[in-house]
């Protein structure tokens, strides 16, 4: 007899494999999507590079960031955008449907964590091109940035820090999405709030220091765009600061805990208010 915790972990892992296996099978029925996504990713990337080049026409730097540094930020943005398409969009935008059709009841009656179910039930492969393009852009930009950046990344500690900050970025992004999507338990009418998030996060395409001070504050403390792309990019370029790193990890933990709390609160509301 295995201890219950291990059994649970294995059960969750197997559930996840099953979730993703079935949803990939369903998505791959539409091969044309692959071509469309590829064209769309390449088009968006070309457009973003074009605009970035326009912004660099005025001088060698943008908010103190070199061309290759800004490319790392853009790469991170593309990576996160792909992650959104893969996991966040397909799962979290469905919560409102569950609320509207009443199938949330079924989710709540499964012997598995409902937040886990709602967040990981499906996966869409169509974000993968963007994720690959983002990773490619980051690699290329780091190589361009020259030996200085590469030297900063040579120690295992620096690599670990960069990965941790990237993970923190993913966690923050997930929590923001989840919180907005979970609001539909109370307000079915704000189902499109996640769209607002998606369009506002476009700000993460550029380093945070490129913005005027007021916006910088907004993008750090209200809508933590800074922690999504700028902070991990600095770590990747080997100039991560301890303060920002700690701040980023703390924000990530707070966001995750916040999403968890909100969900528990939402469940209590749902189970005492629905009919």
């Amino acid at each position: 007899m295995r201890p219950p915790l291990i059994r649970d972990i294995r059960r969750y892992a197997r559930s996840l494999r099953c979730f993703w296996g079935t949803s990939l099978a369903a998505e791959l029925e539409y091969p044309l999507n692959a071509a469309i996504e590829l064209v769309s990713v390449l088009g968006n990337l070309a457009g973003s590079l074009f605009v970035l080049q326009l912004l660099f026409a005025g001088g060698p730097s943008l908010g103190g960031w070199s061309w290759s540094g800004a490319l790392v930020v853009l790469g991170l943005y593309t990576l996160l955008d792909g992650f959104t398409t893969c996991l966040l969009q397909p799962n979290l935008s469905r919560i409102v449907n569950h609320v509207q059709t009443g199938t949330l009841d079924y989710v709540l009656l499964k012997p598995i964590d409902s937040q886990f179910w709602l967040s990981a039930r499906t996966v869409s492969p169509w974000g993968l091109p963007a994720m690959a393009a983002g990773l490619g852009l980051i690699g290329w930009a780091l190589a361009q940035a020259g030996p200085g950046a590469a030297a900063g990344l040579r120690s295992p500690g620096a690599v670990l820090l960069a990965l941790a900050l990237l993970l923190a970025a993913l966690v923050i992004l997930y929590s923001l999405w989840f919180v907005l999507a979970a609001l539909s338990i109370w307000f079915v009418k704000v189902w499109n709030a996640t769209e607002v998030l998606r369009y506002t996060l476009v700000a993460g395409r550029y380093p945070i220091s490129a913005y005027p001070p007021a916006l910088r504050l907004l993008f750090t403390f209200v809508l933590p765009v800074a922690f999504l792309t700028t902070v991990p990019a600095e770590a990747l370029l080997g100039r991560g600061s301890a303060l920002w790193a700690v701040g980023s990890l703390v924000v990530a933990l707070l966001c995750l805990a916040g999403s968890r709390l909100l969900w528990r609160f939402a469940q209590r509301f749902y189970t005492s208010a629905s009919s």
Partner: peptide
């Protein structure tokens, strides 16, 4: 609210010398 893109771009452009 989701149409804020031009305002964000205004922020970036006003911070760069490109304009």
């Amino acid at each position: 609210l989701s149409g804020v893109l031009p305002l964000i771009m205004l922020g970036v452009w006003s911070g760069s010398g490109a304009g």
